[in-house]
């Protein structure tokens, strides 16, 4: 099976005044294509830092990070933006929808940066909204949607550029349990289509719905655990 993510001896430190905070301490991790993985850890364990590095939102200090067999090192800002747009779909706890754009426009946004014409990207956005059951809400602004609907719009937005990976940071953190289950069902369906899904969560119920749990403690990965 193709290795979608391969990390070896990855280190990341932050300069805090005169002190250096070593957050990721030489971790090794491989995630294969089509895996459904959750990353768990307590606050300060380094899971958000890891997610940022995986999502090319932050750079690691040392070690190797290969995404779809491409070495991610010394990328320019625009190259990182390109890889994010091509390979990765993001889902956030706080949805991060643009408030003055309707659901369809929010979903279509990643295609704008792929220079897809407006008509085509709106058509595709409607298709993806239909996938998450929100076609009828296409013209609605985010503030007219419930939390669950917002997250489904965010998922549709993450999917529209047909990424290799979905990175979800606490995607159910702001949702009630029923809606959380619905959202996780969508992630499961996405995963079954062959997309690698990586979820950062601190909820055991959520991680239990994934195929593999990666536990981070003090910047190191504990023994992986298959569900």
């Amino acid at each position: 099976m193709n290795e979608m993510i391969k990390i070896s001896e990855l280190n990341k430190s932050y300069q805090m005044g005169s002190n250096s905070l070593h957050v990721l301490k030489g971790i090794d991790l491989t995630i294969n294509e089509g895996e459904f993985v959750s990353i768990m850890g307590s606050s300060g364990s380094g899971k958000s830092t890891l997610l940022n590095i995986l999502g090319l939102l932050d750079e690691h200090d040392t070690g190797d990070y290969r995404l779809n067999n491409v070495l991610m090192k010394g990328l320019s800002e625009s190259k990182s933006a390109y890889y994010r747009n091509q390979f990765i779909g993001f889902v956030f706890q706080s949805f991060n929808l643009i408030s003055f754009k309707n659901a369809m426009e929010n979903v279509a946004l990643p295609l704008y940066y792929q220079k897809v014409p407006r008509k085509k990207r709106n058509e595709l956005a409607l298709e993806y909204l239909e996938k998450v059951g929100l076609k009828d809400w296409a013209e609605h602004l985010p503030n007219e949607l419930s939390g669950g609907q917002k997250q489904r719009v965010a998922i549709a937005r993450a999917l529209i550029s047909q990424p290799k990976i979905i990175l979800a940071d606490e995607p159910t953190g702001a949702l009630d349990s029923v809606t959380s289950e619905e959202v996780m069902k969508i992630f499961k369906d996405i995963n079954q289509e062959g997309i690698t899904v990586i979820i950062v969560t601190h909820e055991n119920e959520i991680s239990a719905l994934t195929d593999r749990i990666i536990r981070l403690r003090d910047g190191l990965i504990e023994q992986p655990e298959y569900v």
Binding site: S78, R84, N96, S99, L109
Partner: peptide, 16 residues
């Protein structure tokens, strides 16, 4: 600020 962040996460470069 947040919109800029969202756009960048979705693939916009600083220039864009």
């Amino acid at each position: 600020t947040k919109e800029i962040g969202i756009r960048k996460v979705l693939g916009a470069s600083s220039w864009q």
